[in-house]
Nucleic acid binder design. Structure first.
Length: 416
DNA sequence: TGGGGTTAT
DNA sequence: ATAACCC
């Protein structure tokens, strides 16, 4: 039975790397990428001096007065670079799944099988591992699972080399038999290194997590509920009675996370393909009048429309999301309203010079009034516009030829 | 605590 | 439409 071989690729402090490419002068200085009052990430120079991810600008400047800050509120350069990485991996193998802007899972099982066959036909069964082996575990070349994972480590090295050669980016990789383990193991040696996990060390890896919330798939809410059950670490979760867990969290979540606690994860690598939605948001201290709301929306829309135009598909749904100020529990209170985009407006998405902007603003303001009684005082701290339910144009209308293919100038001569 | 994303219910 | 998850 051939095991799966999954590679998790995780770029080092991604936004900071993109900024260093845009401005090489930053290279040897400690610097951070700022969004509002937060340093969302920083380079390793800054990390040496005590700056951490998601630190407030105040704390960061206190720790490190020389810290240079770059505004990173416009994600365009990061998004574009991110898709270049995904596309590059897609040239090796079709099964590439994005996780955020800086991580990708690649199912390399087929590539491994092919190389394994070539190796066996050449009569040579020796393969050298690339990078670290978790726990420094000895490799047994008579164990075909070991051999497969070692071949995976070679492929991971090729991925990282390709990303560095063509995009100038460094990152980590983890190689293991499923997504969960590949992700966990990729973080074990940190900048610009890679690690392979052999099955015998799986329990050591999963038990090295000190809190259950470090298990990808167990988030804030589930961790809190588990805590009320007395479940604090991976051992607790493994040992907890399944029936009681299912009663608290529902069968689906309970069974999934309990398997995760054993390092088991049968979820497939699902190719991400083009994005399912395009959104743009802005947060602020205060927005409390209809006129301000309209101004904010008018700021968000042009950027979004441009991205949709470049994508080539047409959205069928538009959504407005708001966050209302609340002193307690600042983080959770988002509401949204969405509606279909009227067909006559959908048509205008692919075309320039059509005035699609003001009708969209009107629709979004109607959605706003469904959430907020504008005759009463209100206090917003965030506005977000999202286009989703993207449909390809009829193929006669040119545009998206498929995600991975570059847009090419049309051949001379007629297309009938 | 930003500015994005996804899937399940 | 919301709630959970991910970065």
């Amino acid at each position: 039975a051939a095991c799966r071989v999954i590679v998790h690729v995780d770029l080092d402090c991604f936004y900071a790397q993109v900024e260093m490419i845009r401005n090489p002068e930053l290279r040897d200085k400690p610097f951070g990428v700022q969004q509002k009052s937060i340093v969302v990430t920083c380079n390793y120079e800054a990390r040496k001096l005590g700056v951490k991810k998601l630190m407030s600008v105040r704390d960061a400047k206190e720790k490190c007065p020389q810290l240079v800050l770059v505004n990173g509120e416009d994600l365009t350069p990061y998004r574009e670079t991110s898709y270049k990485v995904t596309e590059l991996l897609g040239e090796f193998c079709p099964l590439v799944e994005r996780l955020g802007f800086d991580e990708n899972f690649v199912d390399v099982t087929e590539m491994v099988e092919k190389r394994l066959n070539q190796l066996q036909q050449s009569g040579c069964c020796r393969v050298r591992v690339s990078g670290h082996v978790y726990n420094n575990q000895a490799i047994n070349l008579h164990d075909t699972t070991h051999v497969r994972l070692v071949i995976g480590s070679r492929i991971a090295e090729e991925f990282r080399e390709a990303i560095h050669a063509s995009l100038g980016l460094t990152g980590c990789a983890g190689v293991a038999s499923n997504k969960l383990l590949s992700k966990l193991v990729s973080g074990t040696f940190k900048p610009n290194q890679q690690t392979v996990l052999l099955p015998e060390s799986c329990q050591d890896l999963i038990h090295s997590l000190d809190h259950i919330q470090k298990v990808p798939g167990i988030g804030y809410k589930t961790a809190k509920r588990l805590e009320t059950l007395g479940v604090r670490n991976v051992c607790d979760l493994q040992a907890f009675p399944s029936a009681a867990l299912e009663k608290e969290l529902g069968v689906s979540v309970a069974q999934r996370i309990q398997k995760l606690s054993y390092g088991e994860d049968d979820s497939p690598v699902t190719p991400s393909g083009p994005p399912q939605s395009f959104s743009d948001e802005d947060s602020f201290k205060k927005c409390s009048s209809e006129v301000e709301v309209k101004e904010k929306i008018e700021e968000l829309l042009p950027n979004l429309l441009d991205r949709i135009y470049k994508d080539g598909r047409q959205p069928r749904t538009v959504r407005l999301t708001i966050r209302q100020f609340s002193a307690t529990d600042k983080w959770f209170n988002r509401e949204s309203r969405q509606c279909p985009i009227p067909p006559h407006l959908i048509q205008k998405f692919g075309k320039e010079s059509s005035n699609i902007l003001s009708p969209l603003v009107d629709i979004l303001m109607k959605l706003f009034r469904k959430m907020i009684d504008v005759d009463l005082p209100f206090h917003l701290t965030l506005l977000s516009v999202c286009f989703s339910n993207l449909k390809d144009l009829p193929s006669s209308k040119k545009g998206s030829i498929g995600f991975y293919l570059k847009q090419m100038s049309p051949p001379s001569g007629s297309g009938k």
